[in-house]
Each structure stands twice: as C-alpha cells, then as structure tokens.
C-alpha cells in the first residue's frame, strides 16, 4: 500500500513537468489572445505605414500599432552574428581539449569553460556595458567601417558602440561554453579504434581529427550548434543592455536594434494597455515555441550520436 502510494507520488512529480509545459503554453496562448484576434498572422511580417513620414511604423503603443517584425529581425541577426563568431572558436576549443591538450591542462581548461557558463547573464551585460562597448566604439567599429563600410553593413551613423554587433559579440561569448562542452561530449564518444585506424594509415594528427573525429561526430556537432542557437535566441539581459533598444530594421550591423526577448524585458512591467501587453505576450509565445522546436531538434541530434547509435557513414 505504502509502496503504491510512494510510486504514485513520484509519478505525480514527474508528470508535473508535463503539466508545467502545458500550463506555460496555455497561459501564453490565453494572454496573447487579444493581440492574435486583432492582428492575426500579420503580426509577424507586416507593419503599418505611417501616413506622414511614409516610413513603416512597427511599434506604436499609443496608437495601437504592433508588429513583431523588428524584434524577429533583431533576434535573428544578433543570434546568427553570435553563432558566426562562436562556432569556429567552440569547435577549435573542443578539438584542442579532446585531441591535443596535455592532460595537465585539460582539467583547468574544462573548469574555466564551465565557469564561463555559470556567470549570470546580467554580469555579462554589466561587463559589456563598461568594457566591451567602449572597446568596440573606440577601436573595433572604426576599423570595421573603414574596411567594410562600402558593403553597407557597417554604417557610421551610430557613435554609441551599442547595437546588433555588440549584442552578437556578447552572445558569442555566452553560448561558447554550451556549444564547446557538447561538441566535446560527442567527440569523446567517437571510439578510439577510429582514431587508431586513421593514424595507422599514416594520417597526420589533423587528418586523423578531420577524417575520424569530426566526420563521425558531425551530427552531434550540428546538434550542439542548434542548442547554442536556442540559447542565443532567448538570451535576455546581456543583449538588452547592449543592443540599444530601438524598434526598427536597419541594414547596418552597427545600428541600434531590439530583440524579441529584450522588448519584453523593457516594456512588459510598464505596458501601457491590454493590447500592448497582449502583443508582448504573443512575442513571448513565439519565443517559447521557437526555442522548444530548436531545443527538441538539437537534443534529438545529440542523442543520436552519444547514445551509441552508429553515426551515419556516407
């Protein structure tokens, strides 16, 4: 009797995890109902054109015009910038740690990357505001403008140092540990016989890493990258502090922008009316679904490799 009761109690705890996900989803759906009825699917890709300035008016709480377009754009741009910088470094670090590192260094280096993952977002933001952004403003941005200004992606009209690029850099630093530690995990899962076979055929160390480690682990590495993307999409505090918070769409990566998470962080507590709050909740709902899909996909890929399922050979 007590046995059954105990088992049911544990089942209940486990089921509550399901319940929480369902509850979050239903609350978000309920909260975004108003905005959904008003704008429908247009919310994510259309905007009102202002009759005076002839410019798109994306986000106007006073007149009740809401469109998530600039936020979706900002989230995508800053996340992909972050991935672009983080992925090569993370894979390089994982290769170094699994294949090249002297054993003495392995422990401390793994610990350091673990620490990098444990630093709270708000402290990254604090550091970015006072150290990274001045650095970008004084040295990096002028150089980028000089070298690549002609492409139009690096305009010189924002002297603050904030913007998409700053957000991308801080995101790269923040998602590095997760990508790198998962990549390390899938690389360690590659059996040693694969490495030995490559070396026995006369491969150099790099050729061995390329042929037997990265080839075999590539599905898992893609999974790790997608998981990093999931983190980047939802990252809030650090991004809010450095992206400049201006609801527009700009071609220049050095311009001020916003992301889905940062607009919620900035405006939710002081939303001016129900429609405003509902629109913000709808952005949260979109973020929820996107991160669930991204995370599920990434987990499946990582599991496929580390669970001992044979990696697909071409």
């Amino acid at each position: 009797m007590a046995d059954k009761g105990f088992e049911w109690l544990m089942v209940l705890c486990a089921l509550s995890i399901f319940a929480i996900v369902v509850l979050i989803a239903s609350e978000l759906v309920k909260g975004s109902n108003l905005s959904w009825n008003q704008f429908g699917f247009d919310f994510f890709y259309k905007s009102v054109i202002d009759s005076y300035t002839k410019l798109p008016n994306y986000w106007d709480p006073v007149n009740g015009h809401f469109s998530a377009l600039p936020f979706v754009y900002g989230t995508l741009v800053s996340s992909f910038l972050g991935l672009l910088m983080a992925v090569p470094l993370a894979v390089g670090l994982a290769v170094f740690l699994t294949e090249m590192c002297p054993p003495v260094l392995r422990g401390p280096l793994a610990f350091i990357t673990e620490l990098l993952a444990a630093i709270p977002s708000v402290i990254y933001g604090l550091w970015a505001v006072f150290v990274l952004v001045p650095l970008l403003r004084e040295y990096v941005n002028p150089m980028l403008i000089k070298l690549f200004g002609w492409t139009g992606f690096f305009g010189d009209d924002n002297p603050s140092g904030l913007g998409y690029f700053a957000a991308g850099v801080i995101l790269a630093i923040m998602i590095l540990p997760i990508i790198s530690s998962l990549t390390r995990e899938v690389m360690t899962a590659v059996p040693n016989s694969q490495r030995e076979a490559a070396l026995a055929l006369g491969a150099t160390r790099w050729e061995m890493i390329w042929i037997s480690v990265i080839r075999n682990a590539r599905i898992g590495i893609v999974g790790a990258i997608i998981l990093g993307l999931g983190r980047a999409l939802g990252e809030t505090m650090a991004v809010t502090m450095v992206i400049g918070n201006s609801p527009g769409i700009y071609r220049s990566l050095l311009a001020n922008g916003t992301t889905m998470a940062s607009v919620i962080a900035n405006e939710y507590a002081e939303a001016s009316n129900d429609l405003h709050r509902s629109a913000l909740t709808e952005i949260g709902l979109a973020l929820f679904f996107v991160t669930i899909i991204v995370n599920a996909a990434a987990r499946l890929l990582v599991w496929a490799v580390t669970r001992g399922a044979p990696a697909r050979v071409q």
Binding site: I17, I20, V21, L23, I24, E27, L28, G31, L227, G230, R231, L233, G234, E235, T236, A261, I264, A265, Y268, L280, T281, G284, L287, F288, T291, I292, V294, N295, A296, A298, R299
Partner: peptide
C-alpha cells in the same frame, strides 16, 4: 526541452 525555454518566457508565464 523545458531547460532550454528562455528565462524571460518563464517570467511572462
């Protein structure tokens, strides 16, 4: 999957 849901969404919920 719940582990990957952004913390800001938890706040909204």
């Amino acid at each position: 999957v719940l582990n990957g849901v952004p913390s800001i969404v938890m706040g909204v919920a």
